[in-house]
Structures are given as structure tokens and as C-alpha cells.
Write a protein that binds this DNA or RNA. Structure first.
Lengths: 342, 342
DNA sequence: CTGAAAGCGCTTACAG
DNA sequence: CTGAAAGCGCTTACAG
């Protein structure tokens, strides 16, 4: 069962494949092809179940109508949902997306970029892992358009769409302060990522604006490959002794960290929010059903996804504007639940 | 900045592109190409940052080294993790994967299959949505190999890899019985999916084997597009009046349902496990941190993913065996936490 | 050992 | 209105 090609249709109808191509691409009118022939071609195409070979078309036209998407971790629902939005919007615009998950690994991301380039994708959407500046720099020098999501590199001029992490952390910290918490800690990930750095900066600024000294020992930076041990260790150090607890609140910079921490906290028999109030970035299901539903900073995933696709497609479709920088920062929502008391 | 092609290298070195192709594909030895030329070609390729055009290669060889993956919902961590396993294993074997999320929508899945076929993928891995029998049947008649995951259609002979859902539900129900629960309900999704049907069947069989009558009103089947309203309704009907509660346990057939239900249950001020014991399929993070961590049926995601890729690649690489049916059923793990009491 | 040539399936100037 | 031909970038029989 060989696949049917333009030629098969052409032969069966008794016309040239040029003509078949015109008809099937809806350019029959343009070339004033007779109704009769037109109909016959379409019928035959249907009859033979013709599926155009897109890679042949891609080779010829130089366009594959495909976007390469590299996200940091597909198993993380945040990126999963974002990926879904991107795929949907792309599909709506006639584009396919090749998904890759770099698993926050710089080498993997590099391989994936090369692979996608070899696949002749028309553009990229990337959430770059730590230490991938160089790859992104190289990409910026090439001619394939791309847009970064979730993170960016301040020193590399390129298009991106992110949220205002500083503002989000600032407001979250303020919320904790407004609930009477004074000894607020921050647990975060590798600060090599701007978004993580901005979150911690916003946290610090809120403290300063409330005339509270920033105590660097209250900021715990976990490695990406953190395990439960690291988390227990961090929390123990933060909490201190039972009689004289050092902290009364924690801001978590990611939900992966937050979820693990809640597990530790509950195993340590500390109560949320009585002993420790918490706020976390991201809005996973888990936070809705835990003992004390977690107050979160929620990102507008749909808007991020749609905008990223829109920006990229603009660049792809109008190469003359491809070099215009689109740098978009969206606001987040603070969703108040029970984890900060009242 | 046009991309460099084989021809560019050939010209610069002063040889034919045939030779360049041989060298770059590691067939220099085979054709006894002189060390000298070989070295020059490789140096030039590096110098010009040559990236082979895979779609041209694909057009010529008829192989794209690409797998099409259609999962039911990428925003669901179950499928996200499964997708990651598949992508990793495929990458290890030199294959790329094009991800699609059908969102449990039959029409979308059909479009995606067509799109992937047009992209000349070498094979498919699919978790088919309800009512997609026909598409899968059509696929089975074609020549592109594929393997189903998570679900299958008993009446269509094709390769698949799933878990023993009957056994899993049977054991889960037995566990509830062993904890003294007698009035066990089941909340599930559209039974058009075999895996859902098997779960409910296993549940029923366990009750029967314990000499408990199966009460069909204790089985609530939600539509896919269920909302909180449907869930509240279902739980209210199951629970009955406060003085004389109709049930003392629930088996959830998916975690999406379970998570929503836990939210409802806690809003209704019912206690887990005191008032209602629960067991759920799938093992999302959420279940680890809720008030009463949930006993779950956990699926061997890594094994499912790896095996699916392995089976598919075998078919792709050895077309003569492509028609051999590989139907694999894996066992699940029952992870006991606190939601069933003791 | 190396090169000229064909061909994968398409699109698109060009000619009539 | 329609067709023959070139060419996208590769691989691979074939010839020498």
C-alpha cells in the first residue's frame, strides 16, 4: 500500500501534476482551471485518500509550518498546561509543534535545538535552562526566529514573554506581612535563572519596604537535583528550635519545592498556617486539596502560550520584522486561600 | 545567512557531494576514502557549521526517524510523565517525537493522525480517546506501525501496552474491604474507554467475591467534561443523609476525579478516612500532601514508556515483524497511605 | 577510491 | 488554460 502522490492523481485523471497541485492548493480559480477538471481531480484525490507529503513540500518551499518547543520539564503540570496552550494556538494557526523537554539540562537543550534545526522548524519557543546563554546567543545570530518563555537572559537582546516575577514576589511577601508575619523565609532554586533571582529580589524588597532586615540565612537556595534530604535540612535550619522558632512564614519560589516542603513540614508535625504560613508560586491541583489550601501566585498560562505563538508567527510570516524585539511582561494573580491564616 | 549544504562543503573541499555524504555518514572506511580527504571534509563541515537537512534525507530515504505521539491530555501529569519517558527513550534510540494532545477529543485525534502522517512519521504511539475505533481501525489497515498505550479496543487486533486495570481495581477494593469498609462506591469516567470499564469490573468482582451485592446506584459515571457541579451532585447522592450515610468508601478511577472529589468532600465537612475511606488510580503529587495522604494504584510509567518505544522501533526496524501483535499488560502497585484508615 | 546522475514528492517560474 | 522542466538537499546504485 504505497502512499498516493500528486503524480498518481495526475495519471489517473490524465492531466499534469502541475495542474493537480494547483487544484489541491485551492489555486484553481487563479489559474482558471475548468470546473470539470477541477472536480475530477478533487474526487480522485479523495478516492485515493491523498495525503500531501509535507516534508517534500517543506523541502521545496523552505517552510515546514512547524514550531519547535523546548520546555524545561514536561512532567511539571505548569509546563504541561503551557504546552497545551501553545499547541492549541499553533494548531489554530495551521502550525504543528514538536515538543521537547530539556529536563533543565543545558546539554540536552543544546542537542534539541540542533535536532529541531535539522528538522527545519520555522521557529522556536524555548524556556532556556541554566547556563544556556551561549546556545541562545548563537540562536540569536542565526536566522530562525524564536521567542523565550518563562525565563530570559538580560544580556541577550531577544524576544520573550514572561511574568513580572519581582512584582509577584513583592505582593506575596506583602500579603504575608499583612497577616502579621514578620519572620519570613524564602526557599528557591538555583539562582542562575533570572526568574528565580527576580522572585527573591521582590521578596527582599518587600521586607526592606516594611523596614525588616533581610537575613540571608533565611533564603535557602536548593540545587535543581534536590531531594527530600536537602529539603528537610533546609527547613530544619530555617525553623530552628521548637521553643524559639526562627521563622513564621515561607515563600516558595516554585511549586515543586513547595509541594515537597509541605510534605516535610507535615511530617515534622508543624502546622500550617499556625506555626508557618506559606505562599507559593504556581497553582497546581495539589495546593487546592492539602490540609490548608495554599495561597498562590498564579500565572496567566493561556495568555503566555497564545502570545508566544502569536509573536513567533508574526516573525515567521513577516521576516522583515523578525528582528524587532518583543519583550512582554504579564502580571500574575495572587489567589488567597487558607495557608496564611487570616 | 543561508544554511550550508553538502554541496557547499563539496565545493570548498573540491570533491563531490557523494563523497562528502559518505564521510559525514561515517561510511568513509567502507568506501576506503583517504584519511586526508576525510579529515578535510570533516573540518570544513565543522567550520561551516553544517547541519544535515533531515527533511531532505527523509524525503530521499523514506525514513524520518520521527515518532508521532498522541496523548490524551498533556496537562495531566500522568501523561506528562509518560510523555517524558517516551521522549527520553526515543532520543536514546536516535528518534525524535512529535507530541500532540488530543484532549480526549476524537476529532482532534483524527486531525492529528492525518497531520502526523503527512509529516511522514515512522510510527505512532497513541492513547486513543473515546469513539476513535474507526481511526485506529483505518490506521491498522495502513502500513505505518503503531502501538496503543493506556487504552485499547478489544475488537481491533493491534499492539498495545496497558496495565491490568481489572486486577488493580480488584486489589484496591479488597484493600478497602480488609479495612472493614462494606459500602464501597466507585466514581469513574465515561465507560466508553476499556480501561475505565475494566476498573469498574474489577471493583464489582471484588465485591461479589466478598459476597457483597453490587449496587449500581453506587457507581457514578461522570462525563469527560465534568465540572464541580457534577461532582458535588454525585457525592451528595452517594453519601445520602448524615444520620444514615449510604457509603463508607470510594474508589476513584482517575486522579482528576479523585482530586476534585477530595475538594468537595472536604468542603462538605466529611472526614477522610473516618467518614469515607478512599483509594484512587494514579499517583499525582497532590495525593502525597493532602490531609490524609491517599492510598493509590500507581502505574509503572517508565516501563510503559520504554516498552512502547521498544515495541514500536522493533516494528519500524523490522517491517517483516511489523504485523506481529505485541499485547502487553503490566501490573500496578498499590501504595498504602492513610486514606483508608488502619 | 571517486564522481555523475537519478530520484524522493512537491512547487513554481516559464513557455505555449 | 495546461504542461514540461527545474530544483529544494539529500542518498545511493552505477560506472569508471
Amino acid at each position: 500500500m504505497k502512499k498516493t502522490s500528486l503524480n498518481d492523481i495526475a495519471k489517473q485523471v490524465g492531466v499534469s501534476k502541475t495542474l493537480v497541485s494547483f487544484v489541491l492548493n485551492g489555486r484553481a480559480k487563479e489559474f482558471r482551471i475548468s470546473e470539470d477538471v477541477c472536480q475530477k481531480v478533487m474526487d480522485t484525490a479523495k478516492e485515493l485518500n491523498y495525503q500531501p507529503n509535507r516534508i517534500a513540500r517543506g523541502l521545496r518551499t523552505g517552510k515546514t509550518n512547524t514550531i519547535g518547543l523546548i520546555i524545561a520539564d514536561i512532567a511539571n503540570p505548569f509546563f504541561g498546561k503551557l504546552g497545551r496552550e501553545i499547541e492549541q494556538e499553533a494548531a489554530r494557526q495551521g502550525y504543528r509543534v514538536i515538543f521537547c523537554s530539556s529536563n533543565e539540562n543545558q546539554e540536552k537543550s543544546e542537542e534539541q535545538i540542533a535536532m529541531l534545526q535539522q528538522s527545519q522548524v520555522d521557529g522556536f519557543i524555548i524556556s532556556p535552562p541554566v547556563n544556556s546563554e551561549e546556545q541562545i546567543q548563537t540562536l540569536a545570530q542565526g536566522s530562525t526566529p524564536f521567542v523565550l518563555i518563562d525565563r530570559y537572559f538580560p544580556q541577550i537582546p531577544c524576544s520573550y514573554i514572561v511574568v513580572d516575577n519581582f512584582d509577584a514576589a513583592y505582593r506575596a511577601t506583602n500579603h504575608l506581612l499583612s497577616r502579621g508575619r514578620k519572620k519570613i523565609a524564602n526557599i528557591t532554586l538555583n539562582l542562575g535563572l533570572v526568574n528565580m533571582q527576580e522572585r527573591t529580589d521582590g521578596y527582599k524588597q518587600a521586607l526592606r519596604d516594611a523596614s525588616i532586615n533581610v537575613d540571608e540565612t533565611m533564603i535557602k537556595v536548593l540545587p535543581f537535583s534536590n531531594g527530600e534530604q536537602d529539603m528537610y535540612q533546609a527547613i530544619k535550619e530555617l525553623v530552628g528550635t521548637e521553643e524559639k522558632p526562627k521563622i513564621d512564614a515561607i515563600l516558595f519560589s516554585t511549586s515543586k519545592i513547595g509541594i515537597m516542603a509541605i510534605e516535610c513540614i507535615s511530617n515534622m508535625e508543624l502546622r500550617i498556617p499556625d506555626d508557618i504560613a506559606i505562599v507559593s508560586f504556581d497553582n497546581p491541583d495539589a495546593y487546592k486539596i492539602c490540609t490548608s489550601p495554599v495561597t498562590v501566585i498564579s500565572q496567566p498560562l493561556e495568555e503566555i502560550g497564545k502570545t508566544a505563538v502569536q509573536i513567533l508567527l508574526d516573525k515567521i510570516r513577516q521576516p522583515e520584522t523578525a528582528n524587532e524585539l518583543q519583550q512582554i511582561t504579564l502580571k500574575t494573580d495572587l489567589i488567597i486561600r487558607k495557608s496564611c491564616g487570616s
